[in-house]
Design a protein around this nucleic acid. Structure first.
Lengths: 253, 253
DNA sequence: GTTAAACGTTTCATCTAGTAAAACAAGTAT
DNA sequence: ATACTTGTTTTACTAGATGAAACGTTTAAC
């Protein structure tokens, strides 16, 4: 093995670490299965990471991310362009629409919220950094719509779970919606994930023009009529554009 | 090597990862030196981590944390008790004192801000999650004061760098202050780190009674007279107590 | 303008150190 | 009571990671 600078067990350790992050509450056997590792190998690697506080065992023998990961992750946030550039843009958008806004990206086959801004008004939608959502329902569809067709095939299940009444029930209907999102350049979701909630999402592109994140505005339905929604769409897509430019994107709509 | 479930290269990889987090802008050689690894070993491990987006190289050949760390870290934040429990307490404290508050912990020989809350008033102190500060000056001293004497010895330099006029200049003076902080149970810092800025810090204890974090309130000096400061001290120490209890601490002052 | 030091990169023979497999104990459901 | 789980431990084997030393380039020194 010449010229391949790869330390296998280190790679596997990180595979395992990702699996721990994506499957909270899993034990050795399940994690080994998810990563395709031998049970004993997974066991040793987890032990090693536990010693360094990278992962920690809960009392019931399942694994979660450890304290050292917290520090590493916080440092990563402050070093990453995406977050650094997005924060002021999100705060500005939040102030303009006076609603909760978030930034989401893809991890595995899920959308994950990586940053947010909330207005100080009393009644607002609550957002959680770190929360994961399936990609095939509600405004996360915007993130999915701009990925490769192979990835889309993989993410949209044959029989989508019905999350609320407004969720499209068939695979075909979802794929059709994705096409429409691509065409119009943003995504509106009315009560798909949660009743009485409207959200608008717009894609963030990087220098290579691929969509790496989406900007979302989420608002209570009762105070979001057509004209308010127009306003939200304009400002949200605009914020996504500004972030794209900051990330080096040079294309146009 | 019987009964030692430790995969050495994985351990070293994480040592290296910590070094990358703590020394942004360092290259292979420097990172190898900091971790005590061979240059070629460090090189291969970094390559491995780069492939998985755990670290990334900047154009000038130095390393930083990569995109995968961002996801892992955000997930860690949302899974960690400390952050989950602290967030509402910080927000409550922030609202009561109407000033910027933060939560800090120790990483290596530095204090790092791991959470914050800012009031919406126009003039406020700005805080950055992820920012690092030396432990021996200003309100971070509160975090240092409650550590083991061996650790303290290690952190307080023989000739402390003067940060502003109000920084104690000698090792002895700093050690003396640490004793006072331990005695009174909190720490006040007037213009030590930045002129025109007052801060108050109080220790957060965990179930084992060790101090794992500190709650800080930072305010502009011009609007913080003695009576306001009294108020801040009371609320800050109270918030630290509430967080300690939430973490399982059962002792008393 | 020459020299020297420092850096990232590459190679390769050596042998440590990580691995797979299988057996184990402890628990849980049937 | 039995048959699955689960996490844990052992062992022999050799794949694969390692240290050292050399390489070409860049940066600093004088």
């Amino acid at each position: 093995m010449v010229q391949d600078y790869n330390v296998e067990s280190v790679g596997k350790a990180f595979d395992l670490l990702m699996a721990v992050a994506r499957n909270p509450g899993a034990g050795v056997t399940e994690l080994a299965r998810k990563t395709g590792l031998t049970k004993s190998r997974a066991y040793r690697l987890l032990h090693t990471m536990e010693q360094r506080q990278i992962v920690k065992r809960t009392s019931d023998g399942t694994y979660g991310l450890g304290d050292a990961m917290l520090i590493l992750g916080i440092t990563a946030s402050s070093q990453t362009d995406m977050i650094r550039l997005a924060t002021p843009i999100l705060e500005d958008l939040c102030q303009r629409v006076n609603e909760t806004v978030q930034l989401r990206t893809i991890d595995g086959t899920e959308a994950i919220c990586i940053a947010k801004a909330e207005p100080s008004r009393d009644l607002r939608v609550h957002a959680n950094v770190g929360r994961r959502r399936p990609l095939y329902a509600g405004s996360p569809k915007c993130l999915l719509a701009f990925q490769s067709s192979r990835f889309i095939e993989e993410c949209v299940p044959l029989t989508p779970a019905a999350i609320t009444n407004n969720t499209p029930r068939t695979r075909g209907a979802i794929l059709q919606e994705l096409t429409r999102i691509r065409r119009q350049g943003y995504c509106i979701s009315r009560g798909e994930v949660s009743d009485h909630q409207v959200s608008c999402a717009a894609p963030v592109r990087t220098i290579s023009a691929s969509v790496v994140a989406t900007v979302h505005t989420v608002a209570p339905a009762f105070r979001t009529g057509d004209s308010e929604l127009e306003h939200i769409i304009r400002l949200t897509t605009d914020a996504a554009h500004r972030l794209s430019s900051a990330l080096g994107w040079t294309g146009d709509a």
